[in-house]
Design a protein around this nucleic acid. Structure first.
Length: 491
RNA sequence: CGGGGCGUAGCGCAGUCCGGUUAGCGUAUCUGCUUUGGGAGCAGGAGGCCGCAGGUUCGAAUCCUGCCGCCCCGACCA
């Protein structure tokens, strides 16, 4: 029925790529690893942005913009930070091109070499903290709660549309506080913002926790994260929130005068989430017919398809549809009336299913006679015929129901794919046969974590924030452990 | 960087092993007619530096050499 989408069960990676491309979300760019986000994909990002941005504003944050280019020297200020990002920085070395003497095209003008090379931001801690030094003198300047929506570049070895691209869009929050407690509270507060966004908007249940030292952000004291399970049993990190301690304050000498007149280093946080979220939507919810979007993030929530033979019939249909459309719009529902006569109804049905529009209304002569409309929901593909009078209320309820149903389905999937392992054999068997989250005891050492990773490909996704106390033995070393951590293969 | 696959019409592909008419199919596109409640049918048309550069040959999409690019699977990471 659906043209050209690889079955999810046959080849998950191909299925994912097919949906991204066929649903017109994005395509590859002329530069390897970069992506062109198409209108359909960008509209989803815009919905995400506006919801998240509102949550940031509601928690007292303001937006700013720091530049794309960062002096190379800034990168070396914080030791762990350089260590983490140096390998994947794109560097600007020249500022001019010229025509080659042999006419072979343009070349970099060797005369135009920069005195200090610039790096394209892989993240903005360095430039922001170098500026915070100027902005912060007193406890009265704190807290400083800023965020920016930008692009960043990280030269990745292997890329996948949305999930990992060389350039990606994201938001990065950077805050500065007078006390450690306040910075930690901020870190956790923003983590909870991400949890709320994922669950309420993306209809995606997430686990939240803290990363192990190995997985920690370069330069952070603690990295918190939310992780969601994709349909192939792999985990995807959807957002991170870092407690930076005084690391960047020390690196950039950001001190403030306390009420008592002492000079102290500022406490910092940073937190981010990216266009990867779009990849998560695809991988967590969609099916072999295409994209399935949660209504709250769907650029078009309801599409209306007219069915008619003669142009006169469309005239009558249009009258009914226009009224219905404006009633729906009055309820803040985004509606598209697809009255193009260049495509047939069946074609449109398939197309909107592919693109994940949550609700489709079809109306034809038969409906006009009966005062009805056909309603189809994308998540279950169910169709029903309802009376025209009740359509607005019905659609409102349906959108809510779809949002909840997608969430329930994802939650059920996660629950069915979260298992406990008490021995290493059991652990390996689960990962090989089923995937998913595996809760297991760990002795807390980097060495054990590394061994398990190299032997099974699974990593510790997170340590729960309030783990259930349970005496046990590390599945690898047999050493005592007080609680289970969450393992999974990850993107 | 390793392993695998692939570059032929906008997209998807066949043809390459074994060189030989005018390079073909599906789909999309354009024209016309018929159609329209699940990706319509028929007829006609247009669309190609066969990835690039050399070489072998009377003759190369096909054989040889070199290069470039893309995708997938790993190692690094949001």
């Amino acid at each position: 029925m659906t043209k050209g989408i690889t079955k999810k069960s046959e080849d998950y990676a191909a299925w994912y790529n097919d949906i991204v491309k066929k649903a017109d979300l994005a395509e590859n760019s002329p530069v390897r690893g970069c992506m062109i986000i198409k209108p359909n994909g960008f509209a989803i990002w815009e919905k995400m942005q506006s919801a998240i941005d509102k949550m940031f504003k509601d928690t007292g944050h303001a937006n700013v913009y720091f530049p794309l280019l960062i002096p190379k020297s800034f990168m070396s200020k914080e030791a762990a930070h350089v260590e983490g990002f140096a390998k994947e920085c794109a560097v600007v070395t020249h500022y001019r091109l010229k025509n080659a003497d042999d006419g072979s095209g343009v070349i970099v003008d060797p005369e135009a070499k920069l005195e200090e090379e610039l790096i394209i931001r892989p993240t903005s801690e360095t430039v922001i903290w170098s500026t915070y030094k100027k902005w912060i003198q007193s406890y009265r300047d704190l807290p400083l709660l800023l965020n920016q929506w930008t692009n960043v570049v990280r030269w990745e070895m292997r890329t996948r549309l949305f999930l990992r691209t060389t350039e990606f869009l994201w938001q990065e929050g950077h805050t500065a506080h007078a006390t450690k407690r306040e910075a930690i509270d901020e870190t956790l507060k923003m983590l909870d913002v991400y949890v709320a966004f994922a669950e309420k908007y993306m209809a995606m249940p997430v686990l939240k926790g803290v990363k192990t030292e190995t997985e920690r952000f370069a330069g952070a004291v603690d990295t918190y994260c939310i992780e969601a399970l994709m349909q192939d049993g792999k985990s995807l990190q959807l957002g991170t929130s870092h407690f930076l301690g005084q690391n960047f304050a020390r690196a950039f000498d950001v001190q403030f005068a306390t009420k008592e007149g002492n000079l102290e280093y500022v406490w910092g946080t940073s937190w981010g989430t990216s266009t990867r979220l779009i990849g998560a939507l695809v991988m967590a919810h969609s099916d072999d017919n295409g994209l399935i979007l949660p209504p709250k993030l769907a650029p078009i929530q309801v599409v209306i398809v007219p069915i008619y033979k003669k142009p006169e019939e469309l005239v009558d249909i249009r009258k009914v549809v226009e009224q219905m459309k404006s009633q729906l719009q009055d309820k803040d529902i985004s509606v598209k009336f697809d009255d193009r006569d260049t495509y047939k109804p069946g074609w449109k049905f398939a197309e909107y299913e592919l693109k994940g529009v949550p609700v489709r209304l079809a109306i034809g002569p038969r409906d006009l006679e009966n005062g009805t409309v056909e309603v189809a929901r994308r998540d279950t593909l169910e169709k029903s015929v309802i009376s025209l009078e009740g359509v607005v209320l019905h659609v409102q309820n349906l959108l809510t129901d779809i949002q909840e149903n997608i969430y329930r389905k994802a939650l059920k999937f996660r629950e069915e794919n979260t298992r406990r392992a008490d021995t290493y054999d059991e652990f390996k068997e689960i990962l090989v046969e089923r995937g998913g989250f595996v809760l297991a005891h760990w002795d807390g050492t980097k060495e054990t974590e590394e061994k398990i990773k190299s032997e099974t490909m699974a990593t510790i996704r997170l340590i729960p924030l309030q783990p259930d106390k349970e005496k046990g033995k590390c599945i690898y070393s047999g050493k005592p452990s007080d609680y289970r951590v969450v393992f999974a293969k990850a993107y």
